[in-house]
């Protein structure tokens, strides 16, 4: 029986160890350094031009997926991000860009995106793409999206991820924030990300 107990304890410890994360956590959000690949994409910008990660060279980037007809999470999350950016000193703010990637390209034209992101501030950039481009990007960051059946007016809901992904100035992934993270904590995490 003691041998059995020792064996069991060893197994339990092995399992517990497997779940440990050794990286020091300096964010309020989740530290996902190394868990996902570097920032890389090809999308369409607010002027209808092709945009790649080159556009955000030397900027810390926050990536967020959504759509402009979103009734709840997109406007609240973008508002939180805009408020958090306002709390930062101008110099830090200038080092950060927010990518708002619409997963509803049928309705979200570049013009609509430009108008929409304009409500939230100049550092929030609207992007979208075709199905293939969006699938590639969402798969890369372990997220997805889907559409409901349209109602009689042609309106439909879109399911999308609620997370904000933070990349440093070299495009390396570090930060994973839930949409309900308080504004103060988002601001501190943004500052930490810009300082990397």
């Amino acid at each position: 029986m003691p041998r059995r107990l020792i064996a069991l304890t060893t197994l339990v410890f092995a399992l517990a160890l497997a779940s440990c994360n050794n990286a020091p956590v300096s964010f309020h959000g989740k530290d996902i350094t190394g868990v996902m690949p570097d920032l890389q994409f090809q999308l369409t910008g607010e002027q209808g031009q092709t945009v790649t990660e080159q556009r955000f060279q030397d900027k810390a980037v926050i990536l967020f997926f959504g759509y402009t007809h979103c009734p709840d999470f997109c406007p609240t999350t973008l508002t939180s991000l805009a408020q958090a950016l306002k709390k930062l000193p101008e110099q830090t703010r200038e080092q950060i860009r927010v990518m708002f990637v619409s997963v509803d390209p049928d309705r979200d034209t570049p013009e609509l995106l430009k108008k929409y992101t304009g409500y939230f501030g100049p550092r929030i950039v609207g992007l979208t793409g075709n199905k293939e481009q969006l699938d590639t990007l969402t798969k890369r960051y372990r997220t997805t999206y889907g559409y409901d059946e349209p109602d009689e007016n042609g309106n439909y809901l879109v399911s999308h991820g609620l997370a904000m992904y933070g990349f440093d100035k070299q495009g390396k992934v570090h930060l994973f924030m839930r949409n309900d993270q308080p504004v103060d904590q988002i601001a501190e995490d943004l500052a930490a990300l810009a300082g990397l």
Binding site: T144, Y145, G146, D148, V158, H160, L162, R178
Partner: peptide
């Protein structure tokens, strides 16, 4: 919810 569902 955080990573998005395959459909709503």
């Amino acid at each position: 919810a955080v990573c998005g569902r395959a459909w709503p």
